[in-house]
C-alpha cells in the first residue's frame, strides 16, 4: 500500500495532466490542481521547520563542534518569528518596524553579499577552465578571449564585436539547441517512466 498508492496517484494525475493539455474545456480542473499545490506548499512549511529544528537540536544534543551555528539559527528563527507575529497583530507597536528593518537592512544585504561573491567565483572558475592544457581548452580560451574583447570592443577592435556576435549566434546557439533537444526528450522520457510506474526510485525503492 505504501508504494501502490503513490504509484496510482502519480499515474492518475499524470494522465489527467496529459488529458488537460489535450482538452481545453478541462482547463478549470488544471487550475484547481494548481491551487492544491499551493495548499500542499503551505503545509510543507511546517515539515521544513520541523526538519530544520530536529537537525539543529540533534547537533546541540550531541555537542557537535559547530554547535555555535545551530544556536545562531535558532536565535534568528525565533527572534524573527516572534517579532514578525507580534508586529503583525499589533501594527501600532515598534516590533513591525523592527521586523521590516531586520529584513531590509540585515537579510537583504546578506543575500546580496552572497550573490556578489559570484564575481570572484566566476574569475577563479574561468582561470581553471581557460588553462590551455588540451586543444579543446585552447579553443575555449580563444573563444572566451574573443567574446570578452568583443563585449568591450572599440576603435580598431570593433571587428571582435562582429566575431562575438557570430560566435554567440551560430556555434553557441547550435550547441545549446542540441543540448535542449536532448533535455526535452529526457524530461518527456522521465515523465512517461514516472507516469507508467517504470521509474520508482524516487519513492525510496526500486522494487
Amino acid at each position: 500500500m505504501k508504494r501502490t498508492l503513490p504509484l496510482f496517484l502519480a499515474f492518475f494525475f499524470g494522465i489527467i495532466g496529459i488529458i488537460v493539455q489535450m482538452v481545453p474545456a478541462l482547463k478549470g480542473l488544471m487550475d484547481t490542481m494548481l491551487d492544491w499545490m499551493a495548499i500542499i506548499a503551505a503545509f510543507a512549511l511546517a515539515v521544513g521547520i520541523s526538519s530544520l529544528t530536529r537537525h539543529h537540536m540533534t547537533k546541540i544534543r550531541r555537542k557537535h563542534k559547530d554547535i555555535f551555528f545551530s544556536y545562531v539559527t535558532f536565535i534568528a528563527m525565533f527572534f524573527m518569528t516572534i517579532i514578525g507575529l507580534v508586529g503583525y497583530f499589533r501594527p501600532e507597536g515598534a516590533l513591525q518596524g523592527l521586523f521590516e528593518n531586520m529584513y531590509n537592512y540585515v537579510r537583504v544585504p546578506l543575500d546580496a553579499s552572497m550573490f556578489a561573491l559570484l564575481a570572484f567565483y566566476i574569475t577563479s572558475a574561468a582561470y581553471r577552465a581557460f588553462r590551455a592544457r588540451t586543444w579543446l581548452a585552447t579553443v575555449l580560451l580563444l573563444a572566451g578571449v574573443i567574446v570578452m574583447i568583443g563585449r568591450v570592443a572599440f576603435g580598431p577592435f570593433i571587428i571582435f564585436n562582429d566575431i562575438t556576435a557570430w560566435i554567440m549566434k551560430v556555434p553557441t546557439t547550435a550547441a545549446m539547441r542540441a543540448v535542449n533537444v536532448g533535455i526535452g526528450l529526457g524530461i518527456v522520457a522521465t515523465s512517461i517512466k514516472i507516469v507508467l510506474g517504470i521509474e520508482r526510485s524516487y519513492l525510496g525503492g526500486g522494487e
Binding site: R128, I183, A189
Partner: peptide, 21 residues
C-alpha cells in the same frame, strides 16, 4: 542550460542535460 557552462568550468565531471535523466 544557462548553468551548464559554470559546472563544466568548475567541476570535475558534468552530466550534460539528458545524461542527468
Amino acid at each position: 542550460s544557462s548553468q551548464l557552462p559554470f559546472f563544466i568550468a568548475a567541476c570535475d565531471y558534468t552530466l550534460i542535460g539528458e545524461e542527468l535523466y
